[in-house]
């Protein structure tokens, strides 16, 4: 405990690093994944912009990239990370890798959320002369908002998990802290406190997500 107290500044820095990684990648992956998920949905044959070629390419890419374990994925894109961020270590490099990896996961969740929308509703919008862009932004997203928000709070947990793994690649944050200051020195108090911090973070994220989803669904 004394050891932990003498390193609180490192702990606080780790918390900030985790928050930075999680929220930066939640926003970037959220937007990239939204675009990719909408594309998967609308290009599916029979849907709004149904196009077998485009859909197949997107679908195969997502299917290949999404299941790659994050530790391997982030290592594999080191050259890209170095080219974009300038380095492969530190929270910014980790956030970059996280954003890319999470975008693929988000895209599937977005697609799943949109599948629940009645096709008749899109038909009704087409029938009054609305074009694809308007339908995407003023029908698809609002109609699927409840499930979308729940999907994002689900992915939030996944990003927290990946951000801890990012610590293994020198990304910093709570995962790094728990290993360097905790398990490697057999200091279990440090590990437990880190666990508690992550549990609080995840619970807060879930709470906010559920609250917003309930409002979107008016329940």
């Amino acid at each position: 405990m004394d050891f932990f107290l003498s390193n609180t500044d490192v702990f606080v820095t780790a918390i900030w690093q985790t928050l930075f990684m999680v929220f930066a990648s939640l926003i970037v992956a959220g937007l990239l994944g939204l675009a990719l998920g909408i594309a998967l949905y609308v290009y599916r044959p029979g849907n709004l912009l149904g196009n077998r070629g485009v859909f197949t390419v997107l679908n195969v890419v997502v299917n290949i990239v999404r299941p790659i374990p994050f530790v391997i994925f982030s290592t594999a894109i080191f050259p890209l990370t170095r080219a974009v961020i300038g380095t492969t270590i530190g929270p910014q490099a980790a956030a970059f890798a996280l954003s890319l990896a999470a975008a693929f996961a988000v895209s599937r969740i977005v697609e799943q959320s949109l599948v629940g929308i009645e096709p008749g509703v899109i038909e009704a919008a087409r029938a009054v002369g609305a074009g694809p862009g308007r339908i995407i932004f003023t029908v698809l997203i609002p109609e699927g908002l409840g499930p979308l928000i729940l999907g994002y709070s689900f992915i939030f947990v996944g990003i927290v998990d990946m951000s801890a793994q990012a610590g293994l690649n020198g990304g910093g944050g709570l995962g790094d802290f728990a290993i360097t200051y905790g398990s490697q020195r057999s200091n279990w108090v440090v590990v437990w406190i880190t666990v508690a911090a992550i549990v609080v973070l995840v619970q807060l994220g879930q709470f906010v997500g559920n609250h917003l989803a309930r409002r979107a669904l008016r329940r």
Partner: peptide, 10 residues
């Protein structure tokens, strides 16, 4: 339409 197809978000 038979199922009305109203926008539930509006």
């Amino acid at each position: 339409f038979q199922q009305f197809n109203l926008f539930r978000s509006r």
